[in-house]
Design a binder for these strands. Structure first.
Lengths: 96, 96
DNA sequence: GCGATCCAATACCGTTTGGGTATGTCGGGT
DNA sequence: ACCCGACATACCCAAACGGTATTGGATCGC
């Protein structure tokens, strides 16, 4: 499992449509299809129902969606934290 | 940034030593060194101080460590959630 | 019923990324 | 000065990723 797969999954879930999701993600449809299937395969659980209209989230997919968003938000937080200059204790003569 | 990089980073932070971390991760030292440097490069922030004794977490690294652990825990939660059989509402005539 | 249409799935290919082995560079201990 | 133990670099190969072309399957219009 990769962070890309999580982003891909969230986008497909939001669009309900692999083609549109691929367009939003700036990749083409086949690799996206493969990544989604790879994710389902790794989890051992189908996340979507394939319908003639597109992709529909299954209950497992809905549960996973929340958690995936949480993970991605966590990544953003991590990056922001690392880049945060915590600053040293202000001391006299400091650059202040 | 990848989940592998986060796992690698956490392991190096815990071991304080690229060699031992690589051993724990079942990969060799050079790729691990590269992944860590790549992570620092992507963040634009050094996470470790290289000392003759090994790797020492810098403040940014300590902040990132907490967040990285949180992300990895979130991934585990996501997987567990997806695999959880929520079960349908039990209804008369159901298969059970 | 048949073709048009729209969807995801598959086949195949080039490029990129990840990890392995061998070696280099720097600093500390004796 | 030498040796040893750290991380860093060079180079190579295999696996993963994404792209194009095409197929398979279900619905809608006639």
């Amino acid at each position: 499992m990769s962070l890309s797969q999580l982003r891909y999954f969230v986008t497909v879930a939001e669009e309900g449509h692999v083609g549109r999701a691929a367009s939003r993600l700036r990749i083409s449809q086949p690799p996206l299809t493969r990544q989604i299937r790879g994710l389902e395969d790794e989890l051992g659980v189908p996340l979507f129902r394939r319908t003639p209209r597109g992709m529909e989230l299954l209950p497992a997919g809905q549960r996973f969606l929340c958690a995936a968003r949480d993970v991605l938000a966590g990544v953003d937080r991590a990056v922001a934290l690392a880049r945060t200059d915590a600053g040293g204790p202000p001391r006299p003569g400091g650059r202040g």
